[in-house]
Design a binder for these strands. Structure first.
Lengths: 118, 118
DNA sequence: TCCCTGGATAGATGTTCATCAAAACAAGAC
DNA sequence: GTCTTGTTTTGATGAACATCTATCCAGGGA
């Protein structure tokens, strides 16, 4: 469940977009991450998990918030998992997901308009 | 050329992902924006334009940086334009594109892990 | 005027993706 | 063991997307 390779940004690519042109490999990595969050359901899933008390949420909590079927939620969770944005763990009957904010941070940094260079 | 409606984030949606759950309409808007930058070519186009001296770049400068045909570049520029991320203007023979950093800022803010609440 | 060049549009094609129903799997309860 | 509930995987289907070729439009120079 948690042995996904971290497809995403390992840290070496954080100079803001507007500062210098992205290299092609950097762009490919970043595009994968942005694609993972370019779906409304996945954005809300990530948000629900990240903002949930205790930092983790049960799938059973998540499914009710959407109009789609269980398998569809499971599919979206898998996409987020493969992007390294969340991680799941089974504890007894339920599976709990937890967000990885440190993976989001570089994405935000790249988009940041290079805050006021004096 | 510049009469695209601003499909994107008009400001009212900037509470970080990890702070509180996104509403469904917020998620839909944000997902559109992220989808626009979820392609390596578009990310590099945006980066090339935003980091270009003078803040604008000629399409002729952009095309050479990629292995795809002119129409494909034109298509990607259109996607970025429709997302409100860039704007194009024809001056004589050439068309110049300019980035809108103020549209990127809210996207970065949403991803930001709610920087240290003391 | 006519051509040439830069750029956008139109139409077609192959691929990727979101979704669902059905089946499989995992853990408790009986 | 067998039933029940919760979650993931599989396979299929229709929509969205990236890319190409061919065509069109706008400006500038002969």
């Amino acid at each position: 469940m948690s042995k996904q390779l971290p497809l995403v940004v390992t840290g070496a690519c954080c100079s803001p977009l507007a500062r210098e042109p992205l290299s092609e490999p950097q762009a490919v990595e970043l595009a994968k991450a942005f694609k993972a969050i370019s779906d409304p359901i996945r954005l809300r899933l990530l948000s629900l998990i990240a903002s949930h008390e205790g930092g983790e949420a049960c799938v059973c909590d998540l499914t009710d918030a959407f109009d789609v079927t269980g398998p569809t939620i499971s599919h979206h969770l898998k996409v987020l998992r493969e992007a390294g944005l969340i991680d799941g763990e089974r504890r007894g009957t339920w599976v709990y997901y937890r967000a990885h904010p440190e993976v989001l941070a570089p994405l935000a940094a790249v988009l940041m308009p290079a805050a006021v260079p004096a």
